[in-house]
């Protein structure tokens, strides 16, 4: 059957959360081959887990440059696997690292590149990807002329899981040309923070905007998020004002979310914000301005002050939970 390579990204010694979705995407298109760049001897512990997630073949590319050079080792790993296995497609997460690797691989091999697929399928000989464009205003299907296809898959978009397999294992050594690679000088981990759900892929999101007025008052957004078991999001204005970290930004240039419930607090609903949340199933907005554009997309809008409405809402949710 047709081989499909899936680049497995590692972070702090662990496989990234994108792994199961990528292997499922690969399994849909053919025989999944997991390709991982690891430090010498570092891959043996991964094989069983990759098999349980559907990899029929694990291609371990060992390099002492892993963690030292940006992108280079992962690129050489995929490049070597491509030459050895002649896949019909390569799937990679649409993360920063994934996009860098996919882009360089496509440029190097002159293969067609499909970016930010939210769905993939094979249709006869070709691979068809679906994209959600302009904040979900359009669904676009694309394919690649000339094989193979290199596809980056939006994180969290593919929820199914592949059947477990017992993988064959290949181990090779790769080396990137240091002259073409950036050097990783240092890495710092984010504070472990809270046990709130991750924003990307969250089923519920409570976002706050400039209307919260200060970093201190932004706590109200977190309190409602906790009462609902939701992730915390924000508008760019709230991020720019320093109320919350940039990793919480929802919108055109932030994260795209598509939750069951999206609550917008003190957010006007600029077109660039809506581009990141308008595919939510249910949208709720609280804003003092009855004409705020956020109400045009809200299923339930409250014209009111977040500082009076939200505490009452939290009380009502808590009262119900303790019944």
């Amino acid at each position: 059957m047709n081989k499909i390579l899936a680049l497995i990204e590692m972070s702090g010694g662990e496989m990234c959360s994108t792994t199961p979705g990528l292997l499922a995407a690969a399994a849909r298109l053919g025989t999944p081959v997991a390709v991982v760049a690891v430090a010498p001897g570092g891959g043996t512990g991964l094989v069983a887990e990759l098999g349980s997630l559907g990899a029929e073949h694990v291609y371990l590319a060992e390099s002492d440059q892993v963690g030292k050079l940006l992108v280079g080792p992962q690129l050489e790993a995929l490049s070597a696997a491509m030459t050895a296995l002649q896949p019909v497609a390569v799937v990679v997460a649409n993360s920063a690292e994934g996009r860098d690797v996919a882009a360089r691989l496509a440029a190097r091999t002159r293969a067609g590149l499909i970016v930010d697929a939210v769905d993939v399928r094979s249709e006869g000989e070709r691979i068809v990807a679906t994209h959600s464009v302009f904040g979900g205003a359009y669904a676009v299907e694309s394919t690649v002329e000339g094989a193979p296809a290199i596809v980056t898959v939006r994180q969290g978009a593919i929820e199914e899981r592949a059947n477990a397999a017992t993988p064959a294992v290949t181990t090779v050594t790769v080396s990137a040309d240091p002259a073409h690679s950036a050097v990783i000088e240092s890495v710092s981990a984010r504070d472990a923070g809270s046990d709130r759900p991750e924003l990307r892929g969250a089923a519920r999101v409570v976002s706050g905007g400039r209307g919260l007025g200060s970093r201190e008052s932004f706590v109200l957004v977190e309190q409602l998020a906790d009462a609902l078991g939701a992730a915390v999001g924000a508008s760019r204005a709230a991020v720019d004002a320093g109320y919350v970290a940039q990793t919480s930004q929802v919108g055109q240039t932030g994260i795209t979310v598509s939750p069951q419930l999206y609550v917008a607090l003190g957010i006007s609903g600029a077109i660039q914000h809506r581009a990141g949340m308008q595919t939510a199933k249910t949208i709720v907005a609280i804003n003092t301005d009855a004409d705020a554009p956020i109400f045009d997309v809200a299923d339930f809008g409250v014209v009111g002050d977040v500082f009076t409405v939200v505490p009452q809402l939290i009380e009502a949710i808590k009262a119900r939970a303790s019944r």
């Binding site: 067609g112 068809v128 669904a139 676009v140 299907e141 694309s142 394919t143 002329e145 000339g146 193979p148």
Partner: peptide, 9 residues
């Protein structure tokens, strides 16, 4: 190789 659009809705 190149990517081409198949459908738009």
């Amino acid at each position: 190789g190149r990517s081409v659009v198949v459908t738009t809705s």
